[in-house]
Design a protein around this nucleic acid. Structure first.
Length: 588
RNA sequence: GCCGACAUAGCUUAGUGGUAAAGCAAGUCAUUGGUAAUGACUAGACAUGAGUUCGAUUCUCAUUGUCGGCUCCA
């Protein structure tokens, strides 16, 4: 079934190419593979096309499909194939690549008068292609390399039935609604300013509240687990990064140095060297290890402008960073403990293992000495430790990825999926056997001899910016109580109830609840609507009934309602406070 | 950075070679309300800079930023 769908999408991509050649005969063809949820085809057009042309192309595709063309596979020798594609330079390149791989023949698929070099996986006839839609148009480098020409990529999707296609398109619409950039604007969590600069988010008091709660949570949790929270400057001499060896690997993504007096300073792109210098400020005994320095560390990275996305990808971010200095024999346990912390953090945030996040074991390539430090034995050792931990603790939740390591060692990345299914690294645990050497980090062992520790770099909650983006999308802005910027809104029904409402608001505030009073001269319904749209968890409605009964009983009543529109009825303020405090405490 | 698209009030959108319309939000007044929008009125915008033009928000170019991708992601 799955393969049938892929074949259909593949045939649909050929249908697209056939239509393009009909409409724009001199177009050069790239490749047209199936991807998750659809397909694309890359073209080099004589003249640029735009989104408006897509419907015309779809029309042409329908015409060709309607001819009920048989899709026929043929085998050709390399020589023959080259002749067939002599007007298609990209295809010719592909044929040459196949020749280099030792292929003697290649296959073509033909529908009507359109014939295309293709490995296959196709339907038998164009009439079997289901309803399709061209979704977008974008630039893409030939063979994915920015040194190659930029082609025009047309994305499309195809489903067996119109209903499934419509559902898929509806899902994309839904994903747009959950987009953290949209919700961030609607709920006034953060904003950007052209003058401040791109990739530099400004958090409003509401966004800052979420950030502060996350910070408090993680610092408290780390302190419980024996981390030492430190503070180091977000600026350093360039030399620091030259010693660390980061400089040559990452100078493209660092901000340029600024000259101050005789020194060159740089905004730090990572915190490791700072923590190393802190470590080196005193001699260490094997008895102290592991030493765990943690910091809420601001870092600066010059991300390419096209890469910036809301809070997901920014140019200054704050990482819940830590560096653990350990004896080699402690490394495994240290990593286990880190994974345990990460699992705990994710559980509190409501992220589900396997569904919302997975572990990725990111390995180095022994032969890529440009990208990775050369020490095969150390790499083998480090990778096997990480793999072992994952196998023992998270066998069903991890996968391996080649060529994704840091230059100083392999790592475990926590990959979180966003609503559109796009994966990002949220947190990361890195095993480092290189930097301790570079910085000559040492400890004294039980025999009084100097030894070199290993360092585990890790992030427990990732960058606050990025985790906020995930949480906004996950909760659609309806955060759990402990993270909600406004936890309760007090709504007086009429002006007569204003004084009493102010008193209730004050009581809630004094109890540490983030309460707000809506004292505008609006109707109660309008206030309820607005608070609900702002995803405020609890609404306390106060009218004459509550006020009069409160005076009679010498108590404070409110009429309680949840943002889900569930009516909790009359509630005493003191019991409301206890209820909320408990919910906040348990981070529900 | 690259390819393509886009930029109108706090937000969402309309529109034009003769300086602009609406809804929501905001302010004022009236209304004193019982669980998702009370009514009236007021104020508020063509991203920035150049060019073409009698005249540019509209056309051209540049800049800045945004979006969809590519590339990248310590």
């Amino acid at each position: 079934m799955e393969n049938k769908l892929n074949d259909m999408r593949h045939s649909c991509s050929h249908l697209l190419a056939a239509a393009i050649l009909k409409l724009y005969p001199n177009t050069k063809l790239g490749i047209g593979p199936v991807i998750e949820n659809g397909f694309y085809y890359d073209f080099q057009f004589e003249n640029p096309i735009s989104e408006e042309d897509l419907s015309e192309i779809e029309e042409e595709m329908r015409k060709i499909k309607g001819q009920n063309l048989h899709i026929k596979k043929t085998e050709h020798s390399i020589e023959e194939a080259k002749r067939l594609e002599e007007n298609q330079p990209f295809k010719a390149q592909l044929i040459e690549d196949l020749e280099k791989d030792g292929k003697k023949t290649v296959s073509f698929y033909t529908m009507g008068d359109f014939s295309d070099l293709c490995e296959g996986g196709h339907l038998d006839n164009t009439k079997e292609i289901g309803p399709f839609k061209l979704t977008s148009i974008a630039g893409a480098y030939w063979k994915g390399s920015e040194k190659n020409p930029m082609l025009t990529r047309i994305y499309g999707t195809c489903f067996p039935t119109q209903k499934e296609l419509d559902e898929h398109l509806a899902l994309l619409e839904e994903a747009k609604k959950r987009d953290h950039r949209k919700i961030g604007k609607d709920l006034e969590l953060f904003t950007f300013s052209d003058l401040v600069g791109k990739g530099l988010p400004l958090l409003t008091h509401k966004g800052a509240t979420i950030r502060r709660e996350l910070e408090r949570f993680i610092v408290d949790e780390e302190l419980k687990r024996g981390y030492l929270h430190v503070i180091t400057p977000p600026l350093a001499k360039v030399d620091l990064y030259k010693v660390s060896g980061h400089y040559p690997y990452y100078k493209d993504t660092m901000y340029p140095p600024m000259k101050v007096d005789e020194e060159e300073l740089i905004l730090r792109p990572m915190t490791c060297p700072h923590h190393f210098m802190l470590y080196k400020s005193q001699p260490h005994s094997y008895r102290e290890l592991p030493i765990k320095y943690a910091e809420l560390a601001s870092q600066f990275r010059y991300e390419k402008s096209g890469e910036l996305t809301g809070l997901m990808r920014v140019r200054m971010f704050t990482l819940s960073d830590a560096h653990i200095f350990a004896r080699l024999e402690q490394a495994k346990k240290v990593i286990e403990e880190v994974l345990d912390l990460i699992d705990y953090v994710n559980k509190v945030l409501g992220l589900e293992k396997g569904k919302d996040y997975k572990y990725r074991l990111s390995l180095g390539d022994r032969n890529n000495e440009k990208k990775y430090y050369k020490d095969d034995a150390a790499w083998n050792k480090a990778e096997s430790i990480l793999r072992e931990v994952l196998k023992e603790t998270n066998a069903q939740y991890f996968y391996e990825a080649a060529n994704e390591a840091a230059f100083y060692g392999p790592k475990i990345d926590v990959q979180v999926k966003n609503v559109i299914g796009k994966e990002e690294t949220a947190f990361t645990v890195q095993y480092d056997f290189v930097l301790p050497k570079r910085f000559k980090l040492t400890y004294t062992d039980e025999n009084g001899k100097e030894q070199e520790p290993v360092v585990v770099h890790r992030s427990s909650l990732g960058a606050f910016e990025r985790i906020m983006a995930f949480l906004i999308e996950k909760y659609k802005g309806a955060f759990p109580l402990w993270l909600s910027p406004i936890q309760a809104v007090v709504i007086p029904i009429s002006e007569k109830n204003l004084n009493f409402a102010q008193k209730v608001d004050k009581m809630l505030k004094n109890a540490g609840i983030r309460s707000q009073i809506d004292d505008r001269d609006e109707r109660m319904q309008a206030k309820i609507r607005e608070a609900t749209l702002q995803k405020v968890p609890y609404l306390c409605i106060i009218g004459n009934k509550e006020q009069e009964d409160s005076e009679k009983d010498n108590a404070q009543y409110v009429c309680l309602r949840k943002r889900s529109s569930e009516d909790l009825g009359r509630t005493e303020v003191s019991s409301l406070i206890n209820k909320l405090k408990e919910e906040i405490e348990n981070r529900l």
